[in-house]
């Protein structure tokens, strides 16, 4: 069982595949960084220009956990 009692932002930062994130076009890259910092998937999806479901798929590809 993964320990998730620590700061969700730290968990998102630690698990994230930064190589993948940095390889993305600016809009998607900055949206993922915003999500890592805030955990707000709705706004992040708008930055990315994606629906929430599409952004969630991108989040999973970037190995960023949804901590809640």
């Amino acid at each position: 069982m993964e320990a998730v009692e620590e700061d969700p932002r730290e968990l998102r930062r630690r698990f994230a595949d930064w190589g993948f994130i940095e390889s993305l076009p600016p809009r998607l890259r900055e949206a993922l960084k915003y999500y890592i910092e805030t955990g707000d998937m709705y706004v992040a999806s708008r930055i990315a220009g994606l629906t929430i479901e599409e952004f969630n798929e991108l989040r999973i590809r970037a190995n960023i956990p949804n901590v809640a």
């Binding site: 069982m1 993964e2 320990a3 998730v4 009692e5 999973i60 190995n63 949804n66 901590v67």
Partner: peptide, 21 residues
């Protein structure tokens, strides 16, 4: 006893807060 929760976490890549879990 954590299995059913872990299955959900695996399928969704959603981590539950440790204390609540």
């Amino acid at each position: 006893p954590a299995l059913r929760f872990r299955e959900y976490e695996e399928d969704t890549k959603h981590l539950f807060p440790r204390k609540d879990l």
